[in-house]
Design a protein around this nucleic acid. Structure first.
Length: 235
DNA sequence: GCCAACGTTGGC
DNA sequence: GCCAACGTTGGC
């Protein structure tokens, strides 16, 4: 085993630290980082095997084609900065495009890194009176360095970020359309609980299984079911 | 405003 | 490498 390869693999692991769980069954949920950490512990394990596992996990990750992105529609001041950015603010932006800066969580970042041009995302209103899905967006620029991490005056300034080795990334998203009606979290929860009992597309929705994550991945089944809700009467 | 959930930090 | 303390998210 050459040293060079070992170093490369280590870098790759760091790059993927706290990659989201990729298994869809709740019982088997585990982060890629912890899996890779476990792999490292097994000294007799071949490098090839570790790579195989990693590739498999990345394959899974790349199967996610739909996303959910949270933003706060109500005024809140953090470090003297207004945090409000609702769907109306997105619509008021130039070309209805914004860069999704300020994400400081590895899992959320990795989701953004795997986003592809043209993929669709829900715009979700969080930390507000009526948390809900409000609109759809399209990824219109794939991930690039989030410069706000280096800006001392930015509310999400990261003093540990290194200009030569950026940690934080963002994507550009463009408003696509309003949902025919806002889909409240309570309604999604209703289906989530139902589907957990009876089986169904929302049985493992990350809004509930990974509630604090600000950029979430959706399977096609989850996306389709949620999109269809706008045509159904509210629960 | 409260607080559960959970990610991060740092002492040991 | 463990884990207590701390900080943040976000529903309620």
């Amino acid at each position: 085993m050459s040293k060079r390869v070992t170093i490369k693999r280590k870098n790759e692991i760091e790059e993927n630290e706290n990659v989201p769980e990729v298994e869809l069954k709740k019982s088997t949920r585990k982060t890629v980082s912890s899996k890779l950490a476990n792999i490292d512990k097994k000294e007799n394990l071949e490098e090839v095997s570790a790579k195989k596992v990693k590739n498999k996990l990345e394959e899974k990750e790349s199967e996610y084609c739909f996303w959910l992105m949270k933003s706060e529609p109500e005024s809140r001041i953090e470090n003297g900065h207004e945090m409000k950015f609702g769907v109306d603010d997105l619509k008021a932006s130039k070309d209805k495009i914004t860069h999704w800066d300020g994400v400081r969580n590895y899992e959320a970042r990795n989701h953004m890194k795997s986003m592809k041009l043209g993929q669709r995302a829900f715009f979700y209103h969080s930390n507000c009176k009526n948390p809900c899905l409000v609109a759809t967006m399209k990824i219109c620029k794939e991930s690039y360095v989030d410069h706000t991490a280096f800006d001392k005056n930015d509310p999400h300034y990261d003093p540990k970020s290194d200009l030569n080795n950026p940690k934080w990334y963002m994507v550009d998203v463009q408003f696509e359309r309003d949902l025919k009606r806002y889909i409240p979290l309570t309604e999604l929860k209703h289906y989530h609980l139902l589907h957990k009992k009876t089986g169904g597309p929302l049985s493992n929705l990350s809004l509930f299984t990974r509630s604090r994550l600000s950029v979430q991945a959706l399977t096609e089944e989850e996306w389709n079911f949620m999109i269809e809700l706008e045509n159904k009467p509210p629960v």
